[in-house]
């Protein structure tokens, strides 16, 4: 997984409360391979493209936002389906961070495991940032994970929360399975005792 240390980019306002993962990637693309060369076009496919394939007026099709790699979203971003394909659709477009007041639990976890940083800020702060980047298309946001801080287009600094383990994994681009395999002996001994004590389940 790609490490996340600092990142700055044009930011895109996604003004959709409760934006579910069905919007982020419609189900008809879920059987596609992650290295499908068209994967980038699956992101928000039903909002970005007309039936004939031409562009809609969706924000990602507008001028400077096309280059945006940071999203500023609304409440409950990524709710609904557990489809990790939603994160693959983000990374296929180079999106490295989503700033939102709240996240769907499973999607949050999927982001962390794929080098995409979920940044929780208050409803008001997210609304302020969205307003700023709407008023100045192309305005940038800069994120520093080490200091857990973000600098908005007006140079205001915001501090955000992240679990220490998640931060460590992202800063170092660590893969969970490799990390867990170091606990192999502990898993073995737990399993032996657990299965003996609960042999009704096995």
């Amino acid at each position: 997984m790609e490490a996340f240390k600092t990142f700055a980019s044009v930011a895109v306002p996604i003004d959709i409360p409760n934006c579910d993962t069905d919007q982020i990637i419609p189900a008809r693309f879920l059987r596609r391979a992650a290295d499908d060369p068209d994967y980038h076009s699956f992101l928000f496919a039903d909002l970005r493209f007309e039936k004939d394939g031409s562009d809609t007026e969706f924000v990602l099709n507008q001028g400077p936002y096309r280059a945006g790699k940071i999203f500023v979203a609304d409440i409950n971003w990524g709710c609904g389906s557990s489809r990790e394909n939603a994160v693959t659709a983000l990374t296929a477009n180079g999106i490295r961070s989503v700033i939102a007041p709240s996240f769907g639990d499973i999607h949050y976890s999927n982001c962390i495991k794929n080098g995409v940083l979920p940044v929780p800020l208050s409803v008001e702060d997210c609304a302020t940032l969205r307003a700023q980047i709407r008023e100045s298309p192309g305005a940038e946001i800069a994120i520093d994970l080490e200091t857990q801080s973000l600098t908005g287009p007006d140079q205001t600094t915001y501090v955000f929360e992240i679990n220490a383990f998640d931060k460590h994994r992202l800063l170092n681009g660590l893969d969970d399975v490799e990390l867990t395999l170091e606990f192999d002996t502990q898993i073995d001994s737990f399993e032996l005792i657990y299965k003996t004590e609960n042999d009704w389940a096995y």
Partner: peptide
């Protein structure tokens, strides 16, 4: 509970998951 595909890989390989108590 539901999990993403990276977590699916993790369970296949280790029969465990890292979780945060809700």
């Amino acid at each position: 509970f539901g999990i993403g595909s990276t977590e699916v890989q993790h369970v296949l390989a280790t029969q465990t998951l890292w979780q945060r108590k809700p």
